[in-house]
Design a protein around this nucleic acid. Structure first.
Lengths: 200, 200
DNA sequence: ACAGCCATGTAACTTGTTACATGATTTT
DNA sequence: AAAATCATGTAACAAGTTACATGGCTGT
């Protein structure tokens, strides 16, 4: 919901037209996650469907402007005043992957962590190098550096966790974590529908 | 794609039926992100559609078994041997939100970071308390502790980043980061379609 | 008898995302 | 004249997610 909410929040600053919204989003997020233009128009239509935004008048140039509604403004206020909750609902792809790989008798968890560690460490280096080339003065530069920093902090945590996992894997051989497939509750001799049908 | 891939990877250990797959996924991820049963059947159908899994025979109990195909096995191998790339494509909800909030003249970025910091720190405490209650011996406990640790590491990084952002916000008043809405490239006097139509 | 789990499935819906069509205007 | 950018939109799809319908079996 972050794209949707972001666009709505920008719109709450004043009426915008579609293309402009992309521009605003892109420079605010440091062009880190560029938005496909089509998505803007989709999102605007969905915002309208949900009563959070409406069409406004066109300007001299024929730009199709959009405006936030009262409900939309409320939605933005709620969004800004409530934390992003990472608890449940947000699945961590990497954590899932490693948990599954580590408990899979047929997989080599150590090689998974190895590959991932190399990739994450490489990415971290890239990010740090990128970080140097920040233009400190401009507002765009400030916003951009915050975004890059968030990625750096996350990548550092990822690498630390991977080291931690590798240590655990060294302590316990994978055999200690592997989970065989289980039949949920083996009930022998239960006459099943299919069997019954075959008998009949 | 993590759910899809996880289910396929579990399936690659041996034929499973739907309900069993949920069980396997849940215990491997420490029941941290419980899976709605319906999603299993959806995913299985989609895997079949994509040629990665097929129906197998039913057993005595009438369980509908599924089997991985060669293409599916290949897919699993590729998944396990390639890193999760967090670079582009993966949007960080919190980073987006803060970047947008910080550059919005009408928003109070400091209160956003404050709320989020409190929430994240609270969550971190919960996680650490949860961590204590790990059953160390069992394979399930080992896998579960890895998942919890990943969340702890991530939450720590989040709190650290938020502190970092708050420091930056204190250095620069929000005015220094705020971005006014811009007209992309103001072109005066351009005869627009709408205007031309109105004139005609 | 009844609650609850096991088990399969279907239908609908959400956000995010891309590919494409279309045309005006600007730059080279 | 051609290429690039501005601008609006449409159509389709992916993955995830939920709600619901439908049964059989199990323990109390």
């Amino acid at each position: 919901m972050s794209v949707r909410h972001s666009l709505l929040a920008i719109l709450a600053q004043g009426p915008c037209y579609g293309y402009q919204l992309r521009h605003e989003f892109d420079r605010r997020t440091g062009s880190t996650w560029p938005l496909n233009v089509g998505q803007i128009y989709n999102t605007l239509e969905r915002l309208e469907r949900d009563g959070l935004a409406v069409h406004a008048d066109q300007d001299d140039h024929g730009h199709v402007y959009w405006q936030v509604t009262d409900a939309g403004r409320e939605e933005v206020a709620t969004w800004l005043s409530s934390p992003v909750v990472r608890a449940s609902g947000t699945r961590d792809e990497l954590a899932i992957k490693l948990a599954v790989a580590a408990t899979l008798p047929g997989a080599d968890a150590a090689s998974v962590t190895g590959t991932q560690r190399a990739a994450s460490a490489g990415r971290l280096e890239d990010l740090r190098r990128t970080r140097e080339s920040a233009e400190p003065g401009t507002p765009e530069g400030l916003a951009w550096s915050l975004v890059v920093d968030s990625m750096i902090f996350a990548a550092e945590a990822e690498v630390r966790w991977l080291d931690h996992v590798e240590a655990r894997l060294r302590e316990h051989p994978q055999r200690a974590m592997a989970l065989e497939l289980t039949t949920i509750r083996p009930k022998r001799g239960r006459p099943a529908k299919a069997e019954a049908a075959a008998v009949a």
